[in-house]
Design a protein around this nucleic acid. Structure first.
Lengths: 224, 224
DNA sequence: GCGTTTCTTGGACGAATCTTGAAAAACGGC
DNA sequence: GCCGTTTTTCAAGATTCGTCCAAGAAACGC
């Protein structure tokens, strides 16, 4: 399961450098060249956002403020401004970390990983009950309906896991494919659709009414 | 609701200074003079832990490792060690932040607040409320009026999303078309107008008075 | 190796959605 | 109040999207 980063910086060199570095680390990378673009792309739901503070069209702080209510992922500022007051402003805008250029890539990577790990720790409960008698045991990778385990294949389970962990959030088929397969693919949407069909079939067979809803033209979501 | 911090440092001056500062900020403060004591007190479940790396009886990293599975709160390292490798070690040990001495109190306070805020955000839904009882949940791609979701099609939702994110700004029809369809088109204005009509219709049907205003000769805007 | 399970791909169908064109209404300047 | 322009409305055709099925490919356990 791969994480998606959104990197927003107006300087092409930095953007490319970060993209290639995190790409090599196994992350999916989305790029934005400016603040407005960052806001738009952020709605695709990255797992973490790296935001340059000084961008010409829309200030990073401003981007952060306008996103804060809409997306819940960690937002890390990158900046050359070193003053305390600047840092405090960054946090006040809703940022989760403030990294001063020039930064070392290893430290940046460690911080990114730490924030992602924290996100995961939040949701790392062994067992979660969902409406309708469905219970998912994430550590055992098992879904049960009224005590009886539902036999799922790997991809089916992973899709259920992804959607259920973010219950209520809409994922389009490409996003699901990228998260689970860790790469982009052309026939991705058909593959995902097929697995969702199987998954629904097995859940229905077990007697549960499927918690996976189709949002026409947008994707799937786990009923919350 | 006041948060409880655990501050672990073997130097009495620093401990007292931090305790008094965060005490004034309204936090409950627990103090530990060494690593072993920190582990013991941490089990009382503070909301956040400030951990000195260099303590005589038990290294901060060690403390962190032994706590990580037991407590899920953020752990912030305080240290004079500035090397990248040290920082990376800190994060690898399960730390959530790494703050180099001498640090400014305002920055430290901002970081503490950011980590606590993040904990809280986990439970909060990502929703934005607009005037007139309209609520948009961007991650669920859903618009609700007085709790009842308004069934929108893809393009309708996207237009609402675009306009609401930049409430108050006027978009002409070509601009909307380019943002959403990602290309230029000739009949674009008619297409957009049609979708806006449908969108208004559905919002009106749900009972909400449409937040989309027509600026004659210029385009549309979301009432702010 | 061999058989079984799981994954992936392609195509057909129906339904939901999008787009288009033309006519009616609204607006603003004069 | 009239006229050109812009917006709104309506209905029908075109397109996209999701579901389903079946068969081939790949991975897996033994």
């Amino acid at each position: 399961m791969s994480y998606t980063l959104l990197i927003a910086d107006d300087e092409r060199d930095i953007r490319d450098m970060l993209a290639s570095y995190f790409g090599k680390c196994g992350y999916e990378v989305l790029l934005a060249e400016g603040g407005r673009e960052a806001v738009r792309i952020a709605l695709r739901g990255p797992d973490l956002i790296l935001l340059d503070v000084g961008m010409p069209d829309m200030d990073g702080l401003e981007v952060c403020r306008s996103l804060r209510d809409a997306v819940s992922c960690p937002i890390l500022f990158l900046t050359a401004r070193i003053e305390d007051a600047d840092k405090v402003n960054g946090f006040a805008a809703g940022g989760d970390d403030y990294i001063v250029k020039p930064f070392s890539l290893s430290e940046l990577a460690a911080r990114v990983a730490a924030h992602l790990r924290r996100e995961e720790r939040q949701t790392a409960k062994a067992e979660v009950k969902f409406a309708g008698g469905l219970v998912i045991n994430y550590s055992a990778a098992e879904i049960a309906y009224r005590g009886a385990p539902v036999p799922l294949t790997r991809q089916e389970y992973r899709i259920a896991e992804l959607l259920s962990l973010h219950a209520g959030r809409v994922f389009d088929k490409e996003a699901i494919y990228e998260k689970i397969w860790g790469r982009e693919g052309e026939g991705s949407s058909a593959v995902v659709a097929e697995h969702v069909r199987k998954l629904r079939g097995k859940l229905a067979e077990a007697g549960a009414d499927s918690p996976i809803e189709t949002i026409w033209g947008l994707g799937y979501k786990w009923r919350s």
